[in-house]
């Protein structure tokens, strides 16, 4: 074995652009931190950001504004990372490039349960939302998977997405049916439903952390086996993967991350789709690298959308769910067209 082949071999381990992309992501991430602290109904300058972050004794108005934005910023990153990884997991499990929690109906299911909770059980706090959303997301996921696996050939990607789209449409109308006659619920629900990280505070962050950690660990531990699953079920079994168990665990991780984000920030669509596709396009399909980078890119995309919403909606703000839908929808169409061309 000569030296040349050793250096070649190093490249096989990590994708070619991995380090460059990691550095770029971290730079963008830093820019997002600054932008998220600086922009809003009141735009603050660099000095005030520094004062707000590192000089707790400075009590200027600007510094206080920055301090108030810290929690929101961190919360936004956590939501983005969770949705990015959730997308990567669900895409791998269904082996479908357009599988996103919102497309599989998972976050509509979460939303329905939260609305039911608000309407019939008088729930009103974020910690109660979480459990309702989680239950709704899991039941919807099982339901969609069940419908998708009926008939010959089991749960094919196409059947899953069709089942998800149909279920999602049905559940959305249920949400409307429950909500419209109840104006008080509507008020409470309206803001949540659009998807906003503006509500994020230290409480929601601490509620979020345990779920985020569990979901991320699942993603990291299942990545190598998901790489094998990407070659098809038969090839994966040949490589020693228990495909059923793997799907169950990885899907649970994906649903968990999406459900908790939905509970705390409302349904935010398309992040899972956007985050993973950008990464795959640059470094290829190796999930050991796609998953962590999707967490970072998800965080970046969500916080950029949030900042954009604050600038466009000034002096108020445009909820982040509106912004991601605007960016996401055309990109979904592009990806679908590309995927179709490949499939045909």
């Amino acid at each position: 074995m000569n030296d040349l082949s050793v250096t070649e071999q190093k490249q096989w381990h990590a994708p070619k652009n991995f380090i460059k992309l990691l550095i770029l992501s971290l730079v963008l991430f830093g820019i997002c931190v600054v932008a998220s602290l600086a922009f809003g109904s009141r735009i603050v300058g660099w000095n005030e950001i520094m004062n707000g972050l590192f000089h707790p004794d400075v009590e200027t108005h600007g510094a206080n504004v920055v301090r108030q934005r810290i929690a929101r910023t961190i919360f936004g990153f956590m939501c983005g990372a969770a949705l990015g990884v959730s997308g990567a997991l669900l895409q791998s499990v269904t082996r479908n490039p357009i599988a996103d929690p919102s497309i599989l109906g998972v976050n509509t299911g979460a939303a329905l349960f939260v609305v039911c909770g608000i309407s019939f059980f008088n729930i009103g706090s974020a910690s109660q939302y979480i459990w309702f959303a989680l239950a709704g997301a899991i039941i919807t996921a099982i339901f969609v998977y069940g419908i998708g696996s009926m008939g010959r050939g089991g749960a094919t990607p196409l059947k899953l997405v069709l089942a998800g789209a149909a279920t999602s449409a049905a559940l959305s109308s249920l949400v409307m049916a429950i909500m419209i006659p109840r104006s008080s619920v509507m008020d409470q629900f309206r803001f949540w439903q659009v998807g906003s990280v503006g509500a994020g505070n230290w409480d929601s962050i601490s509620l979020f952390i345990p779920f985020l950690v569990v979901g991320m660990l699942i993603a990291i531990f299942t990545a190598p086996a998901l790489n094998a699953l990407a070659l098809g079920d038969e090839a994966a079994k040949g490589l020693g993967v228990s495909t059923g168990t793997l799907r169950l665990i990885a899907a649970f991780g994906g649903v968990l991350l999406c459900a908790v984000t939905t509970a705390l920030a409302g349904p935010i669509g398309f992040i899972g789709l956007l985050a993973t596709h950008v990464i795959r396009l640059i470094i290829g399909p190796d999930l050991r690298f796609v998953i962590p980078l999707s967490a970072i890119s998800g965080a970046i995309i969500l916080s950029m959308s949030d900042v954009t919403g604050r600038i466009l909606g000034s002096p108020g703000e445009l909820e982040v769910g509106v912004v991601t839908a605007f960016i996401g929808a055309p990109i979904l169409i592009l990806i679908t067209m590309k995927a179709k061309m490949r499939a045909l």
């Binding site: 096989w12 070659l231 795959r280 290829g284 399909p285």
Partner: peptide, 25 residues
């Protein structure tokens, strides 16, 4: 080991990455 009749090629995968996936077990 097993080579199925119609395995799936993940989009954008390189030759070395694909061959490397045989190391999973």
């Amino acid at each position: 080991g097993l080579l199925p009749q119609t395995p799936i090629v993940p989009e954008g995968i390189t030759v070395a990455d694909l061959v490397g996936r045989g190391r999973f077990p």
